[in-house]
Design a protein around this nucleic acid. Structure first.
Length: 282
DNA sequence: TACATATGATCAT
DNA sequence: TGATCCTATGTAA
């Protein structure tokens, strides 16, 4: 579930539910009992997101740090907690249940700064430092597909968005990060901001242009048609019909269209044997 | 029932 | 690069 858009949306929803209110906290599962006991009956000031990290501020100065990891979820719930609920935050009106987080810690105020400093610029944060992103990209020889997953390079992009963004940008994921033009890098940033913002708004990842499928809005695109390449190996590219390829980049699955993203590997059969590997637009 | 898989990240080798 | 942790879900057996 969780890439940066999820966490920003979560911060927003949790603020609506708990901001400025006295909350009830518990750990039905028991693995966060001490933390929950400290939080219980406190006033919640606000939640914020730094990439995939969620940070909650409480009136006494206590800071809650949550990272959902691969499988964590933090969702509204009704009735008694079911299953392994690490943390339940509640008011008289609503409950939110946290399960399976990679991180759920309570700390002092400086924890918030520590978390913020642990990641690179986050395109969803208003004061994000684009230049830091550009500099980080230009400093790395690793594949751009790997660089986008590095949270110190850019915070909030995960395996779905890296594949989708590079497709939209028409960039082969195996291109070295430092081989991109500065303008390409800046465009990538803008694209990431735009796509993640849409994801936050919809509370789901939708990257395809609705017009492609004859849809009115991104919201109206049916499941299974919302992404260009992610998990679509061997299926036809939504733009050019070439079969989508599956590859590994940074030890994770990656998908690309060999035609739209000029892999340099499999070009059209029509291209001569001696086709230049570096014929991309510059 | 069991196993594979998942939108993450860390640590060991 | 591989093992590992967290939990839920979908598919195979």
């Amino acid at each position: 579930m969780p890439e940066g858009h999820t966490i920003h949306r979560l911060a927003r929803d949790l603020n609506a539910a708990f901001g400025g209110q006295k909350i009830h906290a518990s750990s039905p599962q028991g693995r966060f009992e001490a933390g929950a006991a400290k939080l219980n009956a406190q006033i919640c000031d606000e939640f914020e997101a730094h990439g995939k990290h969620l940070v909650g501020h409480f009136a006494t100065g206590d800071v809650l740090h949550v990272h959902l990891g691969l499988i964590g979820k933090f969702r509204r719930a009704k009735g008694e907690p079911v299953g392994a609920v690490r943390l339940r935050l509640a008011t008289a009106d609503v409950n939110w249940d946290l399960r399976g987080p990679m991180v759920c810690d309570l700390g002092s105020p400086e924890l918030a700064d520590k978390v913020a400093a642990s990641v690179g610029p986050d395109p969803l944060r208003p004061k994000a430092n684009v230049d830091a992103f550009v500099a980080a990209m230009q400093r790395r020889r690793i594949a751009v597909g790997a660089a986008l997953l590095d949270q110190k390079v850019v915070a909030g992009i995960g395996n779905v968005y890296r594949a989708e963004l590079l497709f939209i940008a028409g960039i082969d994921p195996e291109t070295p990060a430092n081989a991109l033009d500065e303008s390409q890098v800046r465009d990538l940033w803008d694209l990431a901001a735009q796509q993640l913002r849409l994801g936050e708004k919809l509370n789901r990842i939708v990257t395809v242009d609705p017009a492609l499928g004859g849809h009115k809005t991104p919201r109206s695109i049916p499941a299974g048609e919302r992404l260009y390449v992610y998990k679509r190996q061997d299926e036809p590219c939504r733009v050019c019909d070439s079969p989508i390829e599956l590859l590994k980049v940074a030890a994770r699955k990656m998908w690309r269209c060999p035609n739209c993203q000029g892999s340099g590997a499999t070009q059209h059969r029509s291209s001569k044997k001696k086709s230049p590997t570096k014929a991309h637009k510059k």
